[in-house]
């Protein structure tokens, strides 16, 4: 390059221009050039409008429209330039086999085998100790502590809620629920008093309280006292995938989960009537205290929410 020689003309066989694929601009090149110029100009205008829109803080859609139009016509012009005014070929490139010669393959295989053989045969105890050390480091030094420090062990966390014997039912604003307050067909999400403002606990404690009717409701044998005055309470966590069972079909007396459409019949202990939920929603036993407010007789008699191995 820099020595100033070797610039003699070298004849090279190229480009049969009769080949239709190689004709530069099968269309009229000047027409193509004019068209591309127009595309680039529109692109320029689009970019200019985008700049103005950004500067003047116009509505977001004007930003998107102007930038999109600008980008599109610049790109369209560039592609058209490539398609109509640049050589199209077909050109070829030879494809060479990627593999090496058999001798070269044998050479590397032999080197690997022989050298490894020397190492392993003579020093197998050292290798074993090295492997054991690295393995212990991986498990006891890296893997386990890293994983373990990410979070606490589950322990009893999955089985506990904050519902206790005598817990006062309150709504999201902390208001207690009086026995005369809800008409039949009404529904409110309730929490044990004192836990209604805490995301961590209300995720587990959330319970739907439905006034099913005016008289007591017996959802299952043995639950005669659980729904006084027709107030029935179920865990709001779907037993399928844990979504809040937030819809209530008043006419059908069904609780519906909006995520995967499991439906629970409130009259028979929230047995799933439809959809993927495998278990009934746990029922919270209620009573009405002497001032007429709703309280829980106890906590839930089983873990709430979706299934898990230790359940």
């Amino acid at each position: 390059m820099t020595d100033g020689t070797d610039h003699e003309p070298t004849p090279i066989e190229v480009a049969n221009f009769d080949d239709p694929h190689l004709q530069v601009a099968a269309v009229d090149p000047e027409r193509a050039e004019r068209a591309i110029a127009v595309y680039f100009f529109i692109g320029m205008v689009g970019m200019g409008v985008f700049g103005a829109a950004y500067w003047q803080n116009w509505k977001p859609w004007t930003l998107g429209l102007s930038l999109g139009v600008g980008l599109f016509f610049i790109g369209f012009g560039l592609s058209a330039w490539g398609k109509y005014l640049m050589p199209q070929g077909p050109f070829t490139e030879a494809r060479h086999a990627l593999h090496s010669s058999l001798a070269e393959r044998d050479a590397i295989a032999a080197a690997l085998t022989e050298r490894t053989g020397v190492v392993v045969r003579r020093r197998s105890m050292l290798l074993g100790l090295l492997g054991a050390g690295l393995g212990i480091f991986g498990i006891a030094g890296l893997g386990f502590p890293l994983l373990r420090s990410l979070g606490p062990l589950p322990g009893k966390a999955m089985t506990k809620t904050n519902w206790r014997k005598g817990s006062l039912l309150v709504d999201a604003n902390g208001r207690a629920i009086h026995r005369d307050e809800i008409d039949p067909g009404g529904l409110v999400t309730v929490f044990p008093a004192g836990y209604e403002n805490n995301d961590a606990t209300l995720a587990i404690d959330q319970t739907v309280l439905i006034r099913a009717q005016t008289g007591p409701l017996v959802t299952e044998p043995g639950r005669a006292t659980w729904a006084p005055d027709g107030y029935v309470a179920y865990s709001k966590l779907c037993t399928h995938a844990g979504c809040p069972v937030g819809l209530y079909e008043k006419e059908l007396r069904l609780l519906v989960c909006p995520c995967h459409q499991s439906m629970f019949n409130i009259d028979n202990g929230a047995v799933p009537q439809f959809g993927p939920a495998p278990r009934p929603l746990p029922q919270l036993p209620l009573y009405i205290d002497e001032s007429g407010f709703l309280r829980s007789q106890s906590g839930f008699d089983q873990p709430v929410g979706p299934g898990y191995f230790e359940r």
Partner: peptide, 24 residues
Amino acid sequence: NVVGSPMYPTFMAKTTGYLFMVTA
């Protein structure tokens, strides 16, 4: 063999244009 357009300039122009159009 491989038959088509060369990297420079034809493919580069087309594909850069295409980058702009996808972004658009």
